[in-house]
Amino acid sequence: MGEVNARPVRLIGLPTDIHSSFLRGPAAAPTAIRAALWSEAGNPASESGLELGADIVIDDGGDLPLAENAGDDALIRASVAAAIADGAFPLLLGGDHSVTFPIVEAVAAAHGPIDILHIDAHPDLYDDFEGDPRSHASPFARIMERGLARRLVQVGIRTLNRHCREQAARFGVEIIEMRHFAIEAVPRLDGPLYLSIDMDGIDPAFAPGVSHVEPGGLTVREVLALLHRIEAPLVGADVVELNPSRDVSGITAALAAKLVKEIAAIATVNGRP
C-alpha cells in the first residue's frame, strides 16, 4: 500500500447555501471539513490502511469563487469537467445539496448516465420547494427528469411525504427507508457510480451539525459499512449540508472529514471506470 495511485483526488469546495431552506450555514462547511481533515487530532490513514499523501494523492483545488447567482452552476460544471479531463477524481465539499445537480451534469456529460448512491434523511425530489426549482430539496428531481442517472438508490430516508413518494414513483427511484434499513437491502450498483452524502442522513446523535435535524438515522458504522462494500468504480462524490454553526465540538466536521478520507480510499482502490 505504499504505491501512490495515478488518479489524484481533487477536492473542490463549494461555499454556497443560497438554495437552503430554514437555515443558512453550509457555505462555511468546506473550510471546516478541511480543518478537520488536516487536524493533528487525527492522522491521514483511512480504515483500509491507505494514507492521504502516501497512497492517495490529494489535489486540493480550493474553493470556487461562487457568487450565489445564476452563474454558479456553470462554474461548478466547469470545475468538475476540468478535474475529469485532468484524470482526477472530483470530490466536492458542499455547500447545500443543490450543488449536486450541476456536479452530476458534468459527470454525466463525461461518462453518460450514471448510477447514484444517495445517503440522506430526505429524498430531495421536490418538483420545487417554496417556489425554488433549484432548492436543496430538489436536486434529484432535476437529475432524474434530465435522464442523467440510470439508477438512483436512496438510503436513510425518513421524511418521505406524499409528494416525494409520487416523485419517486414517477422517476423509478429505489428508496430504502430508514424504518426498513438493512445493509443487505441496499443493492450493489454496477457503476460508473456517483456518491452523494448529506450529513443529515446520519443520526443527529453522531452528526448534530446540520440545519435539518432528523432523529432516527444511520449510525456512523452503518454508513462506513455501506461505503466499504462498494466495488464499482467511482466517478465522483460530494459531502454536503454540514452546518458548522450548528456543530458541537466539531464532531460533525470530523465525521465529514473521515468520510472524505474513506471515499478517497475507495476511489483509489476501485480504480477508473
Score class of each variant (00 low, 15 high):
95 G>S: 05
68 E>Q: 14
112 G>T: 09
85 A>G: 11
69 N>D: 15
140 F>R: 12
69 N>F: 04
129 F>H: 15
126 Y>M: 10
81 A>P: 00
132 D>T: 11
134 R>F: 13
59 D>A: 15
67 A>I: 12
57 V>W: 10
72 D>L: 14
67 A>G: 08
94 G>D: 11
63 D>N: 15
115 D>L: 03
100 T>Y: 00
116 I>K: 04
123 P>K: 03
56 I>M: 09
106 A>F: 08
92 L>P: 00
102 P>L: 07
66 L>R: 14
72 D>Q: 10
133 P>E: 12
129 F>W: 14
82 A>T: 06
100 T>S: 15
65 P>E: 14
101 F>M: 01
92 L>H: 00
113 P>N: 04
98 S>R: 07
59 D>G: 03
86 D>H: 04
60 D>N: 12
57 V>F: 11
127 D>K: 12
138 S>Y: 05
78 A>Y: 01
106 A>I: 05
106 A>L: 08
131 G>W: 13
124 D>C: 07
71 G>S: 13
91 L>R: 04
102 P>S: 12
126 Y>A: 07
71 G>L: 06
88 A>N: 13
119 I>D: 00
61 G>C: 06
75 L>P: 00
137 A>M: 09
111 H>G: 03
77 R>Y: 00
115 D>I: 02
71 G>Q: 13
116 I>S: 06
69 N>S: 14
105 E>R: 13
54 A>S: 08
134 R>Y: 10
86 D>L: 07
95 G>I: 10
131 G>I: 14
127 D>A: 15
82 A>E: 08
79 S>F: 02
108 A>R: 08
87 G>V: 12
123 P>L: 07
138 S>D: 06
84 I>N: 01
55 D>C: 05
114 I>H: 00
128 D>T: 12
92 L>E: 00
87 G>F: 06
101 F>A: 01
59 D>Y: 06
122 H>L: 13
112 G>E: 03
81 A>L: 05
64 L>P: 01
76 I>C: 02
132 D>A: 09
110 A>L: 05
92 L>V: 07
98 S>G: 13
77 R>D: 00
96 D>N: 15
128 D>A: 11
139 P>T: 10
110 A>Y: 03
98 S>Q: 09
63 D>M: 10
133 P>T: 11
104 V>S: 02
137 A>D: 06
58 I>P: 00
90 P>S: 07
87 G>E: 07
66 L>H: 09
62 G>I: 08
58 I>D: 04
124 D>S: 11
103 I>E: 12
130 E>S: 12
126 Y>T: 02
95 G>F: 05
75 L>W: 04
119 I>Q: 03
58 I>C: 07
73 D>W: 11
77 R>G: 01
107 V>Y: 03
98 S>Y: 05
62 G>N: 10
80 V>N: 00
55 D>Y: 01
79 S>N: 01
118 H>K: 05
99 V>S: 02
